[in-house]
Design a protein around this nucleic acid. Structure first.
Lengths: 159, 159
DNA sequence: CTCACTTTCTGGAATGAATCAAGACACCGG
DNA sequence: CCGGTGTCTTGATTCATTCCAGAAAGTGAG
C-alpha cells in the first residue's frame, strides 16, 4: 500500500490500518452527511463489492472511537454518522421524515456546557437537537411520524 | 369503577379508560423519574401481578401520546420515561452508568427554540442533553461507557 | 342491574438494529 | 519475503420493540 489518498492519510494519522472497507466507509460518511448504517452498507458495497454488515459496524465503531466520524442517534432513530467532527455544532431533525441538518452552535462552546443546574454532574458535552419539520414535509403537508427514510435525501445537505 | 385516585382522574381527564395496568404504569413512572421500560415492567408486576410486556409498551405509548408521560431516549440508550411533562426542562446523562437527571432550561422557552440557523425547518422543540459524569461514577473513578443500569438508582432524583 | 360496544390486554410470534465469536485473510513493519 | 496482529468473513445470537388474533375488561345507555 504505497502513498495514497487523503482518506488513507487520515486513517494512518489516527494510527489505524488502511483497509478497503475502512476507506469506503469513511468516504461514504463524508459524501453523505448524517447517513444511517444500512445506507452506508449499500454505498460501500457499490464501491468495494461484498462487505459484511458486521465489518461495517466494526469500522464505524473504530472510526468513531478514533474521532474521524461522529455518531448521532436522535430519539427513536437508528444510528446516523457524520464526518463533521471537532466543532460544536448541533442538529435539527424532521419529525415527519427523519431528515437531519446541521445547525451551528448559537452560544459558543463554554456557555453551551453551562447548565442552569448540573445536578452535580461534570459536563463535557451539550447535545442540542431541534425538532421540527423540514421544508419538504411542510410543503407536502406531512404530519405523520418519522418515516425513517433510508435513502439519501438531497435536502440533508443544506449546510 | 367509582371515584378514584388522582391517577384515575388523570387518565379520565385525558379521555383514557382506567385500567389496572395503566394505573400501575403511570404510578411507576411518577415514582421513578427516567425509568426504563424493563424496570417499569418489573415494578408493575410487583403491584398488579402478571402483566404482559406488550401491554406495558402499549400503555406507555398511549400515555405518551396523551401527554401524561414523556419519552426520552438519549443516544445509545433504551427508552426512558418520565412524568414531568409540560415544562421546558432538559436532561443530563452520565456517560458511565447512564443515570439521568433533570436540568431546568437556562434560556426560556422562546429563545430555546431559536437556532442559529434552522436550515429552513419549522422548529417546535429544542432538546438539550448534557453529557458528563455523575458524582457517583466520578467518586468511584469509573470511565467506562454507560453500563445502562436497569435498576432504579437513588441518585436519579436530585431534582 | 344487564347488555352491548369498544377498547385493552394476553400470549404467541415477528422484526430489525446491533453485537458476539471463531477462524480465515489482509496489512505492514522488520 | 515473512510473521505478527489486526480486520473481515461467516454464522449465529441478542434484545428492545412491535405486530396480531382473540379473549377479557371497561363503561355508558337503557
Amino acid at each position: 500500500m504505497i502513498g495514497g489518498s487523503e482518506l488513507e492519510r487520515l486513517l494512518r494519522g489516527a494510527a489505524l490500518r488502511v483497509t478497503r472497507p475502512r476507506v469506503a466507509v469513511l468516504a461514504a460518511v463524508r459524501d453523505h452527511p448524517h447517513i444511517d448504517t444500512e445506507s452506508i452498507i449499500g454505498v460501500v458495497r457499490e464501491r468495494v463489492g461484498a462487505v459484511s454488515h458486521q465489518a461495517v459496524y466494526d469500522v464505524l465503531r473504530v472510526l468513531t472511537t478514533a474521532g474521524l466520524v461522529r455518531r448521532i442517534q436522535p430519539a427513536g432513530s437508528v444510528a446516523r454518522y457524520e464526518a463533521r467532527v471537532g466543532d460544536n455544532h448541533h442538529h435539527v431533525v424532521c419529525r415527519s421524515c427523519g431528515a437531519i441538518a446541521d445547525v451551528d452552535c448559537a452560544v459558543g462552546f463554554a456557555p453551551c456546557l453551562t447548565a442552569a443546574d448540573d445536578a452535580g454532574y461534570t459536563i463535557d458535552e451539550a447535545e442540542v437537537v431541534y425538532w421540527g419539520q423540514c421544508t419538504d414535509c411542510a410543503r407536502q403537508g406531512r404530519t405523520g411520524p418519522a418515516a425513517e427514510q433510508r435513502t439519501v435525501h438531497s435536502h440533508e445537505q443544506p449546510t
